[in-house]
Amino acid sequence: MGDWQTPAGLKYAKSDEWFAVQGDTVTIGITDYAQDQLNDIVYVEFREEGESLDAGDSFGEVESVKAAAELYSAVPGEIVAVNAALEDEPEVVNADPFGAGWMVKIRADDLAPLEALMDAAAYDSYCQGR
C-alpha cells in the first residue's frame, strides 16, 4: 500500500477518477493518489449542468501550479449537479477528495461501462506500479 487512501466500494479509472453509484446517479471525483500527484490544486472548471456527455468525454479540468489534468466520465449521461463550491475553494479537492471534493453528478444513461473499471484493490496496485 502507498500512503494514499483508496476507499472500497467505488469504481476507479486509469485516468484517476472515482465513480460512486446511487441508483442511476453517478458521482465523480478524483482519487487521493491523483490529488497528491497534482499537489496544490488551484483551479477547477466543469462543464455546465444540463450538458450531455458520451462515455469517455471530458467533464472538466483540474489545475495545480505545475500541471493540468483533463477529467473524464466513464459513463454517458447528463450532468445533473456540479460542485460549484470548488471553484472558490479548489484546495478542498486536496483535503477531502472522496467527500467534499466530489466534482460532478451524472444521471447515467448506461452503467455498464463501470464494470470495466477497477475496484479499490486493483487501482491500488495500478498506482503502486506507476
Binding site: 489545475e63 495545480s64 501550479v65 505545475k66 500541471a67 493540468a68 483533463e70
Partner: peptide
C-alpha cells in the same frame, strides 16, 4: 497560470 503553456500541457 503555467499549466496552460506548451512545456506543461504539450499536445493539449
Amino acid at each position: 497560470l503555467r499549466p496552460r503553456e506548451q512545456d506543461i500541457k504539450r499536445e493539449r
